[in-house]
Design a protein around this nucleic acid. Structure first.
Lengths: 195, 195
DNA sequence: AAAAACTCTTAATGTAGATTAAGAAATGAT
DNA sequence: ATCATTTCTTAATCTACATTAAGAGTTTTT
């Protein structure tokens, strides 16, 4: 059936880190669901408690924070086979500091807070899987902080391009500028100078 | 005995998150050790593989990255009851991107890479403990990125002071400036203007 | 198909924070 | 105690990036 097809990429990612049986895959499918978010729709909202984490099958999302002056700051982008959803709010069930928005029509596998507790108990390896997922995310945030401390805007932009080669075509420059911590005008200037 | 005394704070921190038995505490003591680092000594070195994670009992450390221009950038400080040691290098056994240095005479509980594997197997809750520890670290890095994107140097400095009230007396301003991503001269200017 | 609403660019002007330099204060070494 | 080294401050100049503004191109709405 087609739903099974959709789960292949998720299972591949999990099995790349921990072994899971056919039965366990069934359980994961039972305790998660396919969801669709149209372009521009809000997936999660700042100040609300987050109920799901999402594995993207198709499309693109951004996670951003709106500060006290009303300015938005992009923290992450997610595309196919990445995860999205504020982890702090999800795990602690506290109001989120972030909004998640679909930048394209997006299809996801969604896992709810209560269902993931069930899955943790049924499939202990999943806890290790998520620990390693978070660990990887932690490491890339560390890198990003060091880059922000040691590099110019141009260097950070170039690095963004090599790290996310396909993303640049899909999202607007103002979102990239916001991720890099510069204005769209200055990004435009950098682009005009460097190829 | 005195060593037991030293472990109390570590056990308290663990038990705040997961239950552990007296026997399990014995095992943890068996598979870890007390170590001392004199002021200014290097605890871990960039480009080398990290063998230990450290729980600080007394003293203070900084974790920094040296970039290709030879400039140092402070990523973290750790004081009593914090953890120090590059997690990426420790868990993946790959060369570290960071140097860890004692800023004061520092006493720690050290756990080696091989011993933590043994402890994970003997005490499965420890895996959850470290997952939550990393998760908290991840969350605070997220916050820091957003702060760096949305706040001025003065705002970040004020926040640093309220977040780490006792640290400021203990370490030099140049290290704080490096953490904030500004020069010591500019930090001095900010300080002279604001109380 | 027109109007409205964004998005990207270019350019003038403004500013937060860097750089350089030099002296004062504190810390460390002999 | 003294000399050397490091740390902190102040001030002048410089630069990376912000802000404002305005026009051209593109996408969305009606």
């Amino acid at each position: 059936m087609d739903t099974v097809q959709h789960y292949q990429k998720l299972f591949q990612q999990i099995e790349h880190i921990v072994p899971i049986s056919a039965f366990e895959k069934e359980r994961i499918m039972k305790y998660s669901s396919l969801q669709f978010f149209p372009k521009k729709s809000l997936v999660q909202q700042q100040d609300s408690v987050v109920f799901h984490e999402y594995f993207l099958l198709k499309g693109c999302m951004r996670t951003y924070h709106t500060d006290q002056n009303g300015n938005e700051h992009n923290l992450f982008f997610a595309t196919e086979h990445w995860w999205a959803g504020d982890l702090e709010s999800f795990t602690r069930q506290t109001p989120s500091s972030f909004t998640v928005q679909a930048l394209e029509d997006t299809t996801v596998i969604a896992i709810s807070h209560s269902d993931i507790q069930i899955l943790y108990n049924e499939i202990p390896q999943l806890e290790r899987f998520f620990r390693i997922l978070i660990q990887n995310a932690f490491v890339s945030l560390q890198r990003r902080i060091i880059n922000n401390l040691s590099q110019t805007a141009l260097e950070r932009y170039k690095q963004f391009r090599t790290m996310y080669p396909n993303i640049e075509q899909r999202i607007s420059q103002k979102h990239i500028a916001s991720y890099l911590g510069i204005t769209p005008e200055f990004l435009s200037l950098l682009r005009s100078k460097h190829d």
